[in-house]
């Protein structure tokens, strides 16, 4: 992409400038790559990428609210709070900093860590962290009769009765949806969201 752009612009230039520019562009790119590999340790770079991934996932969690209709009794009245609960070891870091307290659907978003089953009552959505992978059936059975949208990043989460599960597809964050599970809980998922998702069944 970048080289084609360079080429395209270079078409207009006189011939001698064209060569020079191509050379300079290639040199500077190579130098930049070299420098960054020298300056940042590989671990640090991986951590950084991870942080970015969870920022995206946090934003997706927030965006899901727009495409999900909860039954009226589970949603607090306008002006109330929509709560996202985090079950397990929170991988988001500071990713929710910008989203916490933001207005959505006429309500305020709140993100909190779930420490006991009691905490679940206030939640409309929960994120089941990867740490809960082993005790997933337990968590799911706990949430089975609630009206809470369940989201996770554990492989096979949706097939096991979860509603939305983040997956990775060509280095992009995508998600799968178990529509039956959602229907079972009385949640309506917008077709807009469905068309983006990979649909799975229990």
């Amino acid at each position: 992409m970048r080289s084609s752009q360079t080429f395209a612009t270079a078409v207009c230039w006189p011939a001698f400038l064209k060569k020079l520019a191509a050379l300079l562009c290639f040199r500077s790119l190579a130098l930049l790559a070299l420098a960054s590999s020298l300056v940042w340790p590989t671990e640090l770079r991986a951590q950084n990428a991870l942080q970015h991934e969870y920022e995206i996932k946090a934003a997706y969690l927030y965006n899901f609210i727009n495409y999900i209709d909860w039954p009226a009794e589970t949603l607090p009245a306008a002006g109330g709070t929509i709560t996202i609960g985090i079950i397990g070891e929170n991988p988001f870091g500071s990713a929710f900093e910008n989203l916490n307290g933001k207005q959505i659907k006429g309500r305020t978003l709140a993100v909190k860590t779930i420490s006991s089953a009691k905490d679940l009552d206030a939640c409309q959505m929960v994120f089941v962290c990867a740490s809960e992978k082993n005790r997933l059936p337990e968590v799911l059975s706990q949430l089975k009769d609630s009206r809470i949208l369940t989201v996770s990043e554990i492989e096979g989460f949706a097939e096991q009765g979860g509603i939305i599960n983040f997956i990775s597809e060509r280095n992009k964050v995508r998600f799968e949806i178990n529509l039956d599970a959602a229907r079972h809980l009385g949640l309506t998922i917008s077709s807009e969201l469905l068309k983006l998702a990979k649909l799975v069944k229990s």
Binding site: I56, N63, Y67, K172, R174, S190, E192, L196
Partner: peptide
């Protein structure tokens, strides 16, 4: 309107 969700979830394909 139809691409709002694609924007929300950065979905080029959609």
């Amino acid at each position: 309107h139809n691409s709002a969700s694609a924007l929300d979830f950065d979905d080029e394909a959609s």
